[in-house]
Structures are given as C-alpha cells and as structure tokens.
C-alpha cells in the first residue's frame, strides 16, 4: 500500500474549481456514540464516489448531513458553492432542488399514485410550468426508468425493483446536478440490483450528474465507482479507485473486504 492513499483530503490545501461538494472536519455524535470524527472529503463534477464502511459507521448520516437532513456538531459543508449549514430555509430548499436523494427505503408517499409522487416534487419546489408540461415531464422521466405504464398505480402495487426505479424517477424529475444514493441495491435480488446499477450509469450519462453512493454491494462498487472512500472509525480512512483500495494491505481495509 502506498502511503499517499492514507492522506485524508482535508490535509491537501488545494481546492479544485470543479468541486461540487466539499465536506471539511465534520463531527457528529448521537449521545455517547461518536459517528463522524473529523471527516473530510470532496465530490467533483461528473464523478461517482462510493462511500464504503461497516453498518453503523455513519455513511447514511454523512449523506444526510450533505442535504441538511442531519445537522453536524461541527465542521463545514459546501454544496454547489453554498455553505449549507449557514443557509436560510428558502436558500437551502433551492440547493435541495439541485440535489437528488434516493432513500434506502425508497420513501415513496404511500397515499399518492406514481404520478402524484413525481408531481409533488415539482409542485413543492414551486417550479412554474403548465400542467401540460408537468404531464410531459412526468411521462418522460418515467420513460427514462422504463416504467411509464405504472403512472396511475399506487406504490404498494409495485415490486421492490419497480419502487426503486420510481424513487429514482422522482429524484430525476428536477434534473439534479448531484444525486445521493443511500444503498440503492439493498434488498434487491442480484438481477434487479444489476438493472438498477445499469440505470444509475445510464442516468449519469444522460444527466451528466455527480453522485455519492453508499453501498455494501461490491458489484455496485466495482461497476459505478470512479473513486472509493473508506469510512472507518468515523473518518476518511483511505481513498482511491476500487482496484487501489482492494489491493491495500492495511488490516482494517482487508478485514472489511474479507
């Protein structure tokens, strides 16, 4: 293992102009449980970063901090050039319109149809477009995920894989610059999971978005990652490409892959 791979990014003073998310010296505890300890990392335009770590290591907390769902105890987060911890609610909502979030449990609204789930996203962000344009946008987005025939169905009528695709469509309808995926293939069979991974790649190709992906699925990590961050003991323990990470001789990293 080369030593450079262990240098956390916070130690590097350089700031690239294409940085879309910058997390610096983040701390977060829940009671006595310290989840994030001086975590720093960046996401650059057009890249897919996968965050790997054990269950309960704070991966989901990290991406929820990036969109203001969880407030860190200390540290700074810049998303698309804005320090989100200092923003007023209206400003934060404007940033959220540019950042999609795919929840682990899909989080589709049970009481709404697929169409209403997608429309809700547009209406709540006060996107001023006509009903005809809304209909067209909903249809086009559903076509992107291959589920236009489910438009008037309720979430409960859909399979796990279909729900994941609809949740992705709901994320995509605002054409986000950044997409945060929280375990996108968890709970899906390998074939459906592969379908979701291919869809994620196709989306990135079409929308030119940047992504942070939380996953335990090594197939997913191998296929989508441009860079992998190992979250161990609450900090960015190592980072590099998938191949670089799996070749590392560090006992903690080896333990994770074994």
């Amino acid at each position: 293992m080369t030593e450079e791979l262990f240098i956390p990014e916070s130690a590097l003073i350089k700031k690239r102009s294409d940085e879309v998310i910058s997390v610096r010296n983040l701390y977060k505890s829940f009671g006595k449980n310290k989840v994030l300890i001086d975590f720093s990392a960046s996401l650059y335009a057009g890249e897919n970063v996968v965050v790997l770590g054990k269950s309960g290591s704070g991966k989901s907390v990290l991406i929820k901090c990036n969109i203001g769902l969880i407030r860190p105890d200390q540290g700074s987060i810049e998303v698309l050039g804005k320090r989100i911890l200092e923003l007023e609610q209206d400003e934060l909502d404007k940033i959220r319109a540019k950042v999609g979030f795919l929840f682990q449990s899909n989080a589709l609204y049970d009481s709404m149809t697929v169409r209403e789930n997608l429309e809700f996203q547009l209406r709540r962000h006060r996107i001023k477009i006509s009903q005809q344009e809304v209909d067209e946008l909903v249809k086009n987005t559903l076509e992107d995920v291959g589920l236009v025939h489910t438009i008037d169905m309720m979430p409960v009528e859909l399979s796990g894989g279909m729900r994941k695709r609809i949740a992705l469509a709901r994320t995509l309808i605002l054409k986000p610059e950044i997409i945060l995926y929280d375990e996108p293939t968890t709970g899906l069979d390998p074939i459906t999971g592969k379908g979701i991974i291919e869809l994620m790649l196709a989306i990135q190709n079409k929308y030119k978005s940047s992504s942070i992906i939380i996953s335990h699925d090594m197939n997913c990590v191998r296929m989508v990652s441009d860079r992998v961050i190992m979250l161990i003991d609450g900090a960015c323990y190592a980072e590099g490409t998938y191949e670089e990470i799996i070749k590392m001789n560090d006992p903690k990293i080896k333990e994770f892959f074994e």
């Binding site: 969109i67 769902l69 909502d93 959220r96 950042v99 449990s105 989080a107 589709l108 709540r124 962000h125």
Partner: peptide, 18 residues
C-alpha cells in the same frame, strides 16, 4: 409513524416541504 420509519418525512423535507 410509518412515514417516519420509511423515511417519507425526510423525503418530504428534501422536496422543499416543511
């Protein structure tokens, strides 16, 4: 309660809704 445990409340917040 079920909206909370299935992250629908978080999803609502991300959608610019209080």
């Amino acid at each position: 309660g079920s909206m909370k445990v299935t992250e629908q409340i978080d999803a609502m917040e991300v959608s610019g809704t209080n």
